[in-house]
Structures are given as C-alpha cells and as structure tokens.
Simulated scan of single mutants.
Amino acid sequence: MQGLFSFAQGSRKITLPRVRLALTPTPLEPLETTSDRLGFFLSAKRDDLTGLALGGNKIRQLEYYFGAAREQGATTMLVTGAIQSNYTRAVAAACARLGMRCHVQLENRVPGMSSDAYRDSGNVLLTRLYGAEVTYFAGADDEVAADKAIHAVANRLRNAGEVPYHISLKADSAPLGSVGYLHAAQELLEQQPDTTHVVLASGSGQTQAGLLTGLRMLGSGARVFGVSVRRAPGAQRARVLSYCHTLSAMLGVEPVVQESDVQVFEGNLNTGYGLPEDGLMDFLLGAMRREGLLLDPVYTGKAFAAIPRLKEQGYFSPQARVVFLHTGGLPALFAYGPEFLSRLNRIDA
C-alpha cells in the first residue's frame, strides 16, 4: 500500500500511503497533423488512458486520497462535484474496486444544461453503475455551502457506525491529489527530457500544482500553462500557487515554485463553466476528425483550443516542444450528445 517518491536531490525521500489505481506510465503520443498546422512539435501525454473508469487525471490523484483513507480505517468515501463530475465517477469506481461504500453529492453548477442526457448519462450513469449513493446539493455554485452539506452526510454515516473519509477539493484543503502528478512529471521528463511547455485544463488546480512542483523538483524549467475552466485566471493562479506551497510543506521541502511560475489563461471565452459554446464545439469536431483525439467541451477541449491562441500570442516558437496533458473526461461526451448531434446534423447535411 505504501508509495515512494524519490526526490531529485538523491537522498531525500518521503513515504505516503498509496493505493495503486492507475495504469502508468501513460503514453506520450506525437500529434503530427496538428504539429504541421501549428509549426512546432506537439504531443499528447495520454492521461485519459490511466485505466480505471475510462481513465483521466483523477485516477492518479485518488491513489493518495485512498491511501490516506485506508490508513485511517475508512469504510465510506464522500465527494462532491458538478453533475457531470469526472471526480465523482472516479471515486465511485475506486470504491467499487476496493470494497468501500461511496457517497456522491452532485451540484448543479451549469444551470443552462438540463437535458436528460446531461442529468442521467455520462459520468452520472457510470457513478450509479458503480453503486454510489447519490444525493443532490440544492444550492448555487458555493464551495463552502456544498462542503457543509457533505459534512452533514458524513456525520449521519458516522452515527450509523461507518468511518467516513471526505475528499475535499476546497482551496484550503491538503492537496493529496497533487502528489500523483509528481510521478507524472517524472514520467514526462523520462519520455521527453527537452519538453519546453505543458498545456492542461486547470479545474481544482491540483493537477497543475503537482505537475509544476514535480518539474521544478526534478530540475526542469518547462513552463506549465493552466487553462482555467471554472474561475477567473487571477483567482485560479492564486489557488494553484497556494497548493504548490502547501504541497512543498507536506513533503517537508523548501518551496520550489515561484509566483512567476504559475501561469493561468482564460478557458471560458464567450461562455462559462460547462457550457458548450458553438465555436468550441466546431473546434472539437475538427480536432477529432484530424487527430482522432476525443476531447470534452468542459476540460480538455478548452485546454486544447487554447494552444493555437497561445501560439498566436507568441508563447511557442518553432523550436518549442509542447505537451498537451490530456486529462480525460471522455464520459462527458455522451452527456453533451444532443449538442454534438445538433452540430453534426448541420455540418454533415
């Protein structure tokens, strides 16, 4: 159950409880067609292929949350997220594999999405198939209130004799999920030591914080560009930096990430979190048909769409070696089926 991360300094090691869930290392795949179109080398780090529950970045993150939960004797895992949350689906799957109970609280963070497909298919369907108990948070998009509601559920379970473990993704929570991306940084540098940039979707911020911290700990100056899919870039930048500093403190090392290292860009151009803007949907269809690369309109699609924008703004030279971190989220494609079909019916008519 124990996981070990060896630091670049050689003698410094730390052991954290870990439950192996992900199939790693994930491949690094050249995107030749898009590279030719953009004029620099682009590849995809395929963390959509981490295995469990159709993969994604959450599988790496959960190894350390479940490690801590098992060490504490937990019998039930609790997590809250949006209706089409990848995190809740991954937690439900890990619980099924490990013989634990799971309680998922879903929040309606995207009021504009009300189709049956959005509410019942994709991640919601998989979460239920894995046997999770699902409840709905009635309030608005409010992290503090949602956290309070899930704590009430934890108290109810505790009174019933369960040992609950709550995975909190609030900004002030311990970023155990970031530890999984220290390993991903190590993998990436072994696969492509001359990586100059990494582009990824930045949601909770833990993936960006872990990858950036890992790269700096291993001596890489590669720039990590987070594309914020939920918050304003300034707020997301502060969140990621806080996670980086907390992660260093958890590991017992001096902070290696400077404020200037944390770079975050707007991902919700002309739209909001979880909303399928027409231009984005057209872009995703083009990317799928050129590269055979499946992208969702909430996370990976917005991050991938930022790459040509960043190129136009001068961030990538012809000598750049850019990696797109594909963080998964593929079940959400089915939740947005009606929106994709509407585009296809017009385009293919």
Rank of each mutant, 00 (worst) to 15 (best):
314 G>P: 07
313 Q>E: 10
329 G>Q: 10
311 K>I: 04
302 K>F: 09
285 L>G: 04
320 A>Q: 06
276 P>S: 10
316 F>I: 02
328 G>M: 10
283 F>L: 12
311 K>F: 01
315 Y>C: 12
279 G>A: 08
295 L>D: 08
327 T>P: 00
327 T>I: 06
291 E>S: 04
321 R>M: 03
297 P>F: 09
307 I>R: 02
315 Y>P: 05
327 T>L: 06
303 A>M: 08
294 L>D: 07
276 P>D: 04
278 D>H: 14
328 G>Q: 04
317 S>M: 08
324 F>G: 12
297 P>W: 06
286 G>R: 11
276 P>C: 05
284 L>Y: 02
312 E>K: 15
285 L>R: 13
306 A>Q: 10
285 L>I: 14
314 G>W: 03
298 V>P: 04
321 R>S: 09
299 Y>R: 10
329 G>N: 11
319 Q>H: 04
301 G>N: 01
315 Y>K: 12
283 F>I: 04
304 F>W: 11
310 L>R: 03
301 G>K: 07
325 L>P: 12
290 R>L: 05
299 Y>M: 07
306 A>M: 10
312 E>W: 00
323 V>C: 11
280 L>R: 09
298 V>S: 08
306 A>V: 02
318 P>S: 01
303 A>S: 13
303 A>V: 07
314 G>D: 00
316 F>H: 08
283 F>Q: 11
298 V>E: 00
278 D>G: 11
289 R>M: 02
307 I>E: 06
316 F>K: 02
305 A>E: 13
297 P>D: 02
315 Y>V: 09
315 Y>R: 13
316 F>Y: 07
286 G>D: 15
317 S>W: 04
317 S>V: 05
296 D>G: 14
281 M>E: 00
294 L>F: 14
312 E>H: 12
282 D>M: 04
328 G>C: 13
286 G>S: 05
282 D>Q: 12
279 G>S: 12
325 L>G: 01
330 L>T: 15
284 L>W: 07
287 A>V: 12
330 L>P: 11
297 P>V: 05
326 H>A: 08
320 A>Y: 03
285 L>Q: 15
308 P>R: 06
309 R>A: 07
298 V>G: 14
297 P>L: 12
290 R>K: 06
282 D>T: 08
291 E>K: 02
323 V>P: 15
288 M>C: 08
315 Y>F: 15
308 P>E: 03
287 A>L: 06
290 R>C: 09
281 M>V: 02
279 G>I: 09
292 G>H: 01
313 Q>R: 15
310 L>M: 12
277 E>A: 14
293 L>I: 02
289 R>Y: 02
326 H>T: 15
278 D>L: 13
288 M>H: 05
307 I>S: 07
320 A>F: 00
283 F>P: 01
293 L>D: 01
276 P>Y: 07
321 R>D: 10
289 R>A: 07
308 P>L: 01
